[in-house]
Design a protein around this nucleic acid. Structure first.
Lengths: 135, 135
DNA sequence: ATAATGTGTAACCATACAGTTACGTGACAG
DNA sequence: CTGTCACGTAACTGTATGGTTACACATTAT
């Protein structure tokens, strides 16, 4: 658990990465660090939330190995480590082929599903709008 | 205090997608649907949690527009809609350049940062090793 | 009509999490 | 030594979330 060497086990890491990236503030922190390393205080000033809140976001990002921290005097400088994002990328990789399917294919697919559905209720009993549980 | 410097992109869909995908069970549901549409019951059987739990995951995925549902008799067939994942992909896009930087580039980059740092205080009081403040 | 099937929802519980304020601590300045 | 700065952390709060069981409802089967 306390292992902070280079070998992260891929399973735990993927979960941690997805979870870390799920929060919009943390994504924004990463986006900020993409422009260069910054001390914690400077990062916090960029956000409308309190400094301790950012500190905790940073801790989570640290544990997900998405940022690294080192001390410079009394500053704690954070820099980006995008490596774990590869896990997200590789997961996404499997879906890229789907959305490179042309929109026409997708459209005709949806329409055929719709036709299948409407074909079922010529008596008009099943005439519910499909987006009912959508809210 | 409440300085709002960084442009928060309040892209609703992006947030919803990231959040939906944050949960490993929901990712697994998507992975399952990648092989083809399935009714809710069949999806639930593939997981160790109860059927209502899956039903709620499906609702969340529905609201994130990552799956679509249509009725077939008394079945509710779910099929994958990977479109929203493009938002994740495009966010990730900005980071790809980082990990395609060779390790040598990264190393030299880090070292130049280090040099910049040490240049600031010729007294050399702050020579801390990085990667210590992990957890 | 009645039963069985497939599924979503409600109610409830435990836990996680984001945010806050208050405080502790190491590093520098005087 | 003392104060101040830059942090992290503790304690607390409200809310979201994931899980469970019990139930409602529509669709087929008998």
């Amino acid at each position: 658990m306390r292992n902070h060497s280079v070998t992260y086990s891929p399973f735990q890491t993927q979960d941690a990465t997805f979870q870390a990236v799920a929060d919009p503030t943390r994504r924004a922190v990463l986006d900020l660090l993409r422009r260069g390393s910054q001390p914690a205080g400077a990062i916090a000033q960029a956000f409308p939330v309190s400094r301790p809140a950012i500190s905790r976001h940073l801790r989570l990002l640290r544990r997900a190995h998405l940022v690294r921290e080192h001390r410079e005097g009394r500053h704690r400088v954070y820099d980006l480590n995008p490596e774990p994002l590869r896990a997200v990328d590789s997961w996404l990789e499997q879906y890229r082929s789907f959305w490179t399917m042309s929109l026409n294919n997708l459209k005709s697919f949806v329409e055929s599903e719709y036709a299948k559905e409407t074909a079922q209720h010529s008596a008009g009993k099943l005439t519910r709008k499909p987006s009912k549980g959508d809210r």
